[in-house]
């Protein structure tokens, strides 16, 4: 059976990981390549690297970093941040990334998803959506890391992204992100039920139980988190064992 995926997310600025990482005996927690290798060995199923650098120079650094990750990490990785046009996608895939994640640029110009799917295939494009549950009961989509509200809402936008050729939907609930109170189960379940492509849950992971809940109740294909892994609050192997004991199909690496 296809295993549920656990995906650590790493923010990268000027070629270094941003959020602090507190692994024991870890040589260089600031090096995204070393960190990726470490996660791979610990049993992560996939990695997401988000480039939060704004400058043009930073983009070049990030591309070089992607080449180093491809050279040394033997599990799939997705890259996102600063992807505006097809040439950005081409550059990152040529550097060895397995998938690209697009967010604001897809909402601004949805054709970008169609272009990526036509040129590289549907499996290459992850459509990331940041949305907030507003007082009117609507999940409103936001741009630029949650700073700019849009007219788009989560479910209709996710459907359009699927129709245009996105291979996966990575949904981050802004209400839950950083709260460590669990994932947005109801919205994620609805996405899973309505879409025919895989759904990745993001935002709210605080305990192992939260991962179990999102897999058992929302039936998502993958769950993504950052700080609980970076600060080793939830050790990867322990999480996998817990999920397996609870009957979730996960890939366990024999170490």
């Amino acid at each position: 059976m296809l295993a549920k995926r656990i995906i650590p997310c790493l923010d990268v600025k000027d070629g270094k990981t941003v959020k602090g990482v507190q692994f024991v005996n870890f040589r260089d927690a600031g090096d995204p390549v070393e960190l990726g290798k470490q996660y791979s060995e610990l049993g992560a199923d996939e990695l997401v690297y988000l480039d939060i650098t704004a400058s043009h120079e930073g983009r070049k650094t990030f591309t070089e970093l992607v080449q180093r990750i491809a050279a040394e990490v033997s599990i799939p990785f997705t890259v996102g941040g600063g992807i505006h046009e097809l040439s950005d996608v081409e550059r990152l895939l040529a550097a060895g990334a397995d998938k690209v994640s697009i967010n604001s640029s897809a909402i601004r110009r949805p054709e970008l998803i169609s272009e990526i799917a036509a040129r590289f295939g549907v499996q290459e494009c992850v459509c990331a959506i940041d949305a907030r549950l507003e007082d009117d009961g609507q999940w409103r989509c936001y741009l630029n890391g949650g700073r700019i509200p849009t007219e788009r809402t989560l479910f209709e936008w996710a459907h359009e992204a699927q129709e245009r050729g996105a291979g996966e939907i990575l949904f981050t609930s802004m209400n839950h992100d950083g709260s460590k109170q669990g994932f947005a189960i109801d919205a994620l379940r609805r996405l899973h039920e309505e879409l025919s492509i895989p759904v990745i849950a993001s935002g709210g992971a605080g305990t192992k139980q939260h991962f179990l809940d999102v897999f058992q109740q929302a039936h998502v294909d993958a769950a993504l988190a950052a700080s609980v892994f970076h600060f080793n609050e939830i050790p990867m192997a322990e999480l996998k064992q817990f999920l397996a004991d609870e009957g979730v199909v996960v890939r366990q690496t024999c170490k």
């Binding site: 059976m1 296809l2 295993a3 995926r5 199923d45 996939e46 549907v122 499996q123 291979g167 996966e168 039920e193 879409l195 025919s196 492509i197 895989p198 039936h219 294909d221 993958a222 890939r251």
Partner: peptide
């Protein structure tokens, strides 16, 4: 040819 809504296409991820 998915037999239920549980089966997503593409298959993406780790299988045996």
């Amino acid at each position: 040819r998915p037999t239920s809504a549980v089966d997503k296409v593409p298959q993406m991820g780790w299988n045996t």
